[in-house]
Simulated scan of single mutants.
Amino acid sequence: MVDIRAWPRPVVLLCGTLLVAGVYYAAGRLGLSQQLTADGAVVTPIWPPTGLAVACLLLFGARCVPGIALGALLVIVSLGRPGVESIGIVAGNTVAPVCSYLMLRAVGFRVSLSRLRDGVALVFLGALTAMLISSGMGVGMLVVSDKLPSGDLGLVWLAWWVGDAMGVLLVTPLLLLLYRARLPPASARWAEAVGLTVLVAFLVPLIMYSTVSLLFLVYPLLIWSVLRFQLAGGIPCALYASVLATVVAREEVGAFGRLSDIETMMRLQAFNGTLGLTALLLSAVITEQLNTRRSVERACQELVEALQHLNAGGSQSQGGSP
């Protein structure tokens, strides 16, 4: 096995930059494969590279910035001949995750997402606030370069902002979870996990492709996943349902049939957003409660052991007295 730590530091940084850029590019191409057209404007309901960029920064620090910028440039180049506006778009897609990372660090964010404050910070600082930068700079550069009609400004900006935010809400927690994931010991919960996975995989497509709007039926499955498995159950379920909803919306069938382009985008973004918020915040609340309960139980156990030790010491002193 090759020991990377023995490599020269510039080589390690170069390899890391290329790796981040390659993964960013792959995530970008994946996001572009699920485009929607709304009133003539092309939008991506979920933009995975933003979630990937924020996760890399949280896990490995600022040394990932060059890889993020290079990956954003590769995605733009893959779309055609880049223009002057590409500089602003690359800058926005790089600065926004960095600002997200800095704001989360400033409030003491924990990558374990074990507290409600961590979930709230990721939603309102890491996603909703920081992604105003990427959407604002991107749309602004398109308008300045006459690549976007002023009449489409509001719609494109909203779709860009929500797509970037959804990438942070759904992709970042999943990557943070996978980074610290460990195979749990065999237990009865394995059977429940497998059963829940099969049920979600079977029912969610039926709900999405139903000609009757039954999107609300996804939420009981999501809540069950969160209640039993917290983040490990909620985020994959939410991401699976969001991706499938995007596919159905592109096909203009099921719950998204007989809708205009604007109505399709608004319904899809609202659905995806509520899924991500529910999974992230509810799992954070439950995890925090479980950790508090374990702390109380541990403190009670230590108190019992201390009392037992004191009683044992008292009995020995009484037995040894004349």
Score class of each variant (00 low, 15 high):
S100F: 05
A306L: 14
L169V: 12
F229P: 00
A245P: 10
V120Y: 00
S317Y: 06
L57N: 02
Q289C: 06
A159Y: 11
V226G: 00
Y25A: 05
A69L: 01
A232E: 04
G254K: 03
L174A: 14
Q289R: 15
P220W: 11
A191R: 04
A21N: 08
Y179V: 14
L217H: 02
G71L: 04
R293A: 09
G71V: 05
E305H: 10
S295W: 06
T287I: 00
E302M: 13
G16C: 08
S321H: 08
L113S: 00
G88S: 07
G16V: 05
L206M: 14
V200A: 10
T17R: 08
V54A: 00
L214S: 04
G126Y: 15
D261T: 14
I223M: 01
L290Y: 11
A232S: 13
W7C: 00
G233H: 05
V296I: 14
R110E: 14
G154Q: 02
A72P: 03
Y179T: 13
E192K: 06
S317T: 13
A181S: 11
Q269A: 14
V54R: 00
Y219T: 05
P10G: 11
R81S: 11
Y179D: 12
L178N: 04
F109K: 00
V65C: 02
A299T: 05
F216Q: 04
V171D: 00
L277T: 09
L239F: 09
V43D: 02
A53L: 04
I4R: 04
P48L: 10
G254F: 01
I76K: 07
L280P: 04
